[in-house]
Amino acid sequence: MNDPSTENINQPLTEEQVIENLRQTEDLSDQYYAAWWVGRMRSRHPETLPLLLAALQPLHCNPINNERRAVALNAIRALGILQERSAEKDLRSLLKKNDYSIREESARSLGMIKAKAAVPDLCALLSGDPDEAEQLQSGSSKLKEPYESVLEALGAIGVASCSVISMIKPFTKHSRPLIRASAGRALLLLTGNPTWAPPLIELLQHHDPLIRRGVLLDLGATGWMPALPAIQAAAIENSLKLVALRGLAEKSEDPSVLDAMDALL
């Protein structure tokens, strides 16, 4: 019982203390933890939103202080979890930043906020020919854009126009399985057309457990009920199946998903 994380359990910070930690900039590790906490605890304190937005400002400086960048990443995630609509404009501007992780987290949070106005910006990140979308950045295993989180966001926002669909479709043929899965997830969400489901179900059999886990969560997020037996049968630990089924239950509101979850507890 000498795990350091138990200290936080023994002496929980009050919301007021966390807000103060978020406001100050002397101890950036305190600010970093505070930016995470307000999202995790879904803080509705009146100061939460302005302080999170203020924490994004260092991203517009040049050069960007590394620790402040880490605080800002947590702030971006928290704004998504809190579904702060009024953060839309700030997050959209971050999609144009020359920093892969900032674009990745901003796209994801815009998806959680369901920011319709961000759809053209997100689609812009998908543009270019298919070869471009396969190219690695020099000295890294990263692709040009955070395609998974952009595709995920477009699916969550739910604008099913022809132009959005046609931007997403080429990614169902991407060489990376998790990008194919994100594209399938988005198309299934946007069109409700079951033809996008079989490739996802097939990927649940992939030999790499990391891919099986990612696809499992994608299937859960689609709310597509026929995926239930495949999720139940997948060779993946119960903890993660429960997370996937939570997605399925929340999207479909079908009580049979709750029975399936009970059986995995």
């Binding site: 879904r42 939570r246 239950a249 929340e250 509101e253 009580p255 709750l258 979850m261």
Partner: peptide, 12 residues
């Protein structure tokens, strides 16, 4: 309760 699946399960 912030988590929807918890609200669904408690209602059930």
């Amino acid at each position: 309760e912030p988590i929807k699946v918890i609200r669904l399960r408690a209602t059930l």
